[in-house]
Simulated assay, not measured.
Amino acid sequence: MHYRTLFVFLAIALLPGCKTTSLSPSSKSTAVSSNNQGIKMYFGLSKPNGGVISQQQWFKFETGPLAQAFEGFALVDAAGYYKGSKEGSKIVTLYHATAKDMVTAKALARQYCRMFDQDSVLVVQLGVEQIQFVGKE
């Protein structure tokens, strides 16, 4: 009977694509996830025909469609190059991403391109070795 229980446990734990969580030995409040997918999105702030996307325009996009699209994400101001020219950009990163999040990211990229006459938004699917929130304990 114990072998059957062990077999069922192993079968469930090893199923591909399953989300598993374990606790580290030093802290029971720190979860380690094996859903090791992430997404990075690179939003350029220069317009192809000149001009830039204003801070107010970006803020409206950030607090509207972007914030409503994902449960949580990190946002970084950056500079990048596109077609030989330097431009301001925003990098959005989210971890513990699902297939649905990738579909949402692509739809959001298309919306941004339409709103601000952009050629493209770079969307990168990441494989991450480990995702862990580390608390004060």
Rank of each mutant, 00 (worst) to 15 (best):
S85K: 13
V92Y: 00
L108D: 00
V121D: 00
P65K: 04
R114W: 07
A99M: 07
G80N: 11
H2D: 15
L23I: 10
S24E: 14
P48G: 11
G64N: 13
I91C: 01
R114L: 08
A99S: 10
S24K: 06
I12P: 04
F116G: 00
A105P: 02
L6D: 04
G127V: 09
G127R: 12
P48N: 10
W58L: 04
Y82A: 08
E87N: 08
K106H: 06
L94A: 01
A79G: 13
M115Y: 11
Q37L: 04
Q130P: 00
C113D: 14
G64Y: 07
Q125V: 07
I12T: 12
H2I: 08
M1K: 10
Q68A: 12
F61V: 01
Y95P: 05
L14A: 15
K100L: 09
T21S: 10
K90W: 06
Y95E: 10
G84I: 09
G64T: 11
P25T: 00
V134W: 14
S46K: 09
R114N: 07
M1F: 07
L6Q: 01
R4M: 08
S22Q: 15
A79F: 15
S26I: 03
V121Y: 05
S22D: 15
G50W: 02
R114C: 01
F9L: 05
N36Y: 02
G51V: 05
E137A: 02
A13Y: 03
S29D: 15
K100S: 11
V32H: 10
H2M: 05
K47G: 10
A99E: 06
D101H: 02
S24Y: 12
S54N: 03
G127M: 09
P16S: 11
A99L: 08
S34I: 09
I91K: 01
K28T: 08
I53G: 06
M41G: 01
D101I: 02
G38A: 06
Q111Y: 11
V124N: 00
M41R: 00
E129V: 02
I39T: 00
T104K: 06
Q111E: 11
G135S: 13
K90T: 08
L45P: 08
S27I: 05
F59A: 14
T21N: 07
Q57S: 06
A79D: 14
G88K: 09
E87M: 05
V128Y: 08
D117P: 00
T104Y: 07
P48V: 10
G64A: 02
Y42E: 03
Q37E: 03
L10Q: 15
S89A: 14
I53V: 15
K60M: 09
F59N: 12
Q118G: 00
P65H: 02
Y112A: 05
A107K: 07
K19M: 14
R4N: 12
T93N: 06
T21D: 13
S89T: 12
Y42D: 09
G64Q: 09
L66A: 04
V92K: 04
G80E: 05
Q111M: 08
A13I: 11
E137R: 08
C113F: 12
Y42H: 10
G135I: 06
A11D: 03
K60Y: 12
K47I: 01
S34C: 13
P16E: 12
Y3Q: 15
K83T: 13
D101F: 03
G38P: 02
Y42R: 03
M1A: 10
N49T: 12
D77P: 10
A11S: 10
T63V: 10
A79W: 15
G51W: 05
A107F: 03
F73S: 01
K100M: 12
